[in-house]
């Protein structure tokens, strides 16, 4: 029993990211509306950010800003007192990337809407078929 509680307490954070990620993938696969798909994509990327940030955590450690700043000759910072800064740096990049992807995806969604007058996949498919029929 105790082992299970330890297991749960040690891993629950990672399960959160998995649940979020699966919600995102489900939305991309199953939803018919293109905007919902794009939101699913964004949730999916956010889940990965949560995962990385989780790897940065350390018990009893503070944010990675050295408190004394300049002139702290003498005593140097100890790694155990500060959380791991690297995943935060990486995720700053990933956040920016996901914002950029979202922007381009929305742009393309606008273009698709301008073309077909709809964002529902099946309606778009219908109108593509109708146009292909009209060509012949």
């Amino acid at each position: 029993m105790n082992e299970w509680i330890a297991f749960l307490a040690g891993k629950f954070n990672y399960w959160g990211f998995i649940v979020l990620m699966m919600i995102g993938i489900y939305a991309i696969i199953a939803k018919k509306n293109l905007i919902k798909k794009i939101i699913g994509m964004n949730i999916f990327q956010t889940a990965i950010i949560l995962f990385y940030v989780s790897t940065a955590a350390k018990r009893d450690a503070g944010i990675p800003i050295i408190t004394h700043g300049h002139g702290m000759s003498g005593h140097s910072a100890r790694a155990v007192d500060y959380i791991n800064p690297l995943p935060h740096v990486l995720m700053l990049t990933a956040i920016v990337v996901s914002v950029a992807t979202l922007g381009v995806a929305l742009t393309l969604a606008v273009k698709v809407y301008r073309q077909y007058g709809s964002l529902e996949e099946d309606e778009i498919a219908d109108s593509i078929r109708a146009r292909a029929g009209g060509d012949q």
């Binding site: 990620m21 993938i25 991309i28 293109l34 798909k37 794009i38 994509m41 999916f44 990327q45 990965i48 995962f51 990933a94 992807t101 381009v104 995806a105 393309l108 969604a109 273009k111 698709v112 073309q115 077909y116 778009i124």
Partner: peptide, 21 residues
């Protein structure tokens, strides 16, 4: 093309995110 591009974004992002994960 815009629709194809949007599908490419959705799949490409899944691919890149899996790599990241």
């Amino acid at each position: 093309a815009p629709l194809a591009g949007l599908n490419y974004i959705l799949m490409g992002t899944i691919g890149a995110s899996f790599y990241l994960l």
